[in-house]
Design a protein around this nucleic acid. Sequence first.
DNA 1: ACATTTAGTGTAAACGATTACATTTTTGTT
DNA 2: AACAAAAATGTAATCGTTTACACTAAATGT
Lengths: 331, 331
Amino acid sequence: MPSIKDVARAAGVSTATVSRVLAGSDHVKEETRQRVLSTIELLNYRPNLVARSLRSQKSARIGLVVSDIRNPFFTAISRAVEDAAYEQGYSVLLCNTDEDPAKEELYLNVLHDESVAGIIFSPTQQFSARLSTFKSDIPFVIIDRAVNAAQADMVLLDNVAAGYELTTHLIQNGYTRLAGLFGNASTTGKERNKGFRKALEDYQLKPLAEQFIPPRIQQGYETTLMLLDQPNRPDAIFTSNSLLTAGAFQAIRYRNLKVPDDVALVGFDETTWGALVDPPITLIAQPTEEIGRTATELLFQRIEDPGRSPRTVILKGKLIARGSSAPRVNK
Amino acid sequence: MPSIKDVARAAGVSTATVSRVLAGSDHVKEETRQRVLSTIELLNYRPNLVARSLRSQKSARIGLVVSDIRNPFFTAISRAVEDAAYEQGYSVLLCNTDEDPAKEELYLNVLHDESVAGIIFSPTQQFSARLSTFKSDIPFVIIDRAVNAAQADMVLLDNVAAGYELTTHLIQNGYTRLAGLFGNASTTGKERNKGFRKALEDYQLKPLAEQFIPPRIQQGYETTLMLLDQPNRPDAIFTSNSLLTAGAFQAIRYRNLKVPDDVALVGFDETTWGALVDPPITLIAQPTEEIGRTATELLFQRIEDPGRSPRTVILKGKLIARGSSAPRVNK
DNA sequence: ACATTTAGTGTAAACGATTACATTTTTGTT
DNA sequence: AACAAAAATGTAATCGTTTACACTAAATGT
């Protein structure tokens, strides 16, 4: 593996000159530059990024910390971040916290030790407490979940509006006995609940149930069974993320109920299966590609200028109305 | 950010001693060790991994190169690899090639430049050609797809057996006009096809169609439509990966056909949706957790001992029979 | 009592790049 | 032709570790 010294020697120049050529400095004579470049080519030299990082005290790596890579939303985000990062010559270290604050802390430390240039992440709820400590250190951008202190760059969905729109859609399609399943691991669930409530209020309706539960398929399944078995069964179920939607869907099928005739179902996030099941699921699609790209861009901007005032970008979801919430037929 | 020098100074020792304590060397007096440790605690010192990598010429990072992170199989693999790696104190750089040889080459270079200790990856078909060049360099483990030269560690599914089992299952359940959709981006599709053929031969049947197509939902959809519109419609469709399964399922629904009465459908890999659709999909589940862990372990072993002779681990898939291939009822 | 081993520690040279500063070469001016 | 200014290049320190080697002091053997 040739080093910059080998190149310098072979090209008959000093390492400084090679470095300058590499950096694209314009203080190198064209002739020399060519000579160095062809030597680099010849020796198949590639600069050692570790050495470069050590010397320049910065790296071309960013960390991506997601709470569950199995959630298709985060999978999509990962792709977008990765694409955006690699376009800028950055690599991505992926970390998966499973909503576990201990793992989160571990990974933030790891990323710190790896000298990443910045971090994009979806924090656990417990993170807000640590935010102040963390802030001093590495540039970071929060995605998906608001943190208390507005002292950070964030890319969020307008969750209240999305919850409102999805709920309104149900109401306007004739559903009145609404139950909601909300993830309890983040503010996202809370905000979507806020929109849910607001919509109900605006139509002078009362929620039949509001459950805050862990964002897992199993939990969605169990809670939905419970709701379905109550005397006054809901005629529509609102779920605040796709894992809960999957669980709810399973439960409904398990009880041999018809969607949407017996009970409608709506949720969040485009998934492979949402369009495949019968009926397909009505949902709010998040602009994952845009979220990932925006977060990456914000991060680069902050790396560039750590002093700039924090910015929050709020994106809109898109209602995709499908069979699972088709207008209610009078019975 | 304190460095080892700061610790050394504060503890009244040399940096060498601090380093020895850090490395757990037993050539340090207990009293000194304690003093150093408490100084480290006090200053909240954490070793700089970049400097460590540079000096020791190795790093605690591994690269994971997958061909499509949106494929739930690879998502699952990622998780497993990540967990296994972090348990050993390694971080994971994630790369996504989209089956694009150019991206693959780019990422392999990036990983090389990042001085990763090793790479786990699912190569594109074009990779085999580059294998010999690549071999000299970084330790790596191939997953999911066999490469020509057996000169590499590999963790694979017994794809021929899996294809055979899945096909036999269809035949034994009374299906006779079988069509197969196989991914054309890897050897995996070919091998599953081999099992498919073998099973048909053993039962003296002829395949109705064998299509090798890009592993995308859209392609699966279009090809299935084409198959369904032929005069002699298949009574069962075999798909070699979950994206093709999804596409096929969509197409079947679009033509308003009943699964499995009009046409059965089987595929590979556990997905969220496979169990949710009606009827749920029969499939061969791969032991993703085990694949990921095994690959990571093999990689660590190879990093440890680069000279050892390559090893191929072949794991068995598990048939999960569900409604989409229920025994055929006589018409 | 002296030589020899052993344990504990320090010194300083790496690892491979970047970069401030010094030096040399080129160019331009008179 | 001489000098100044500008351009090109080189020298060497530096980033934060690890580690071969050197050294000291104490322990052991004779």
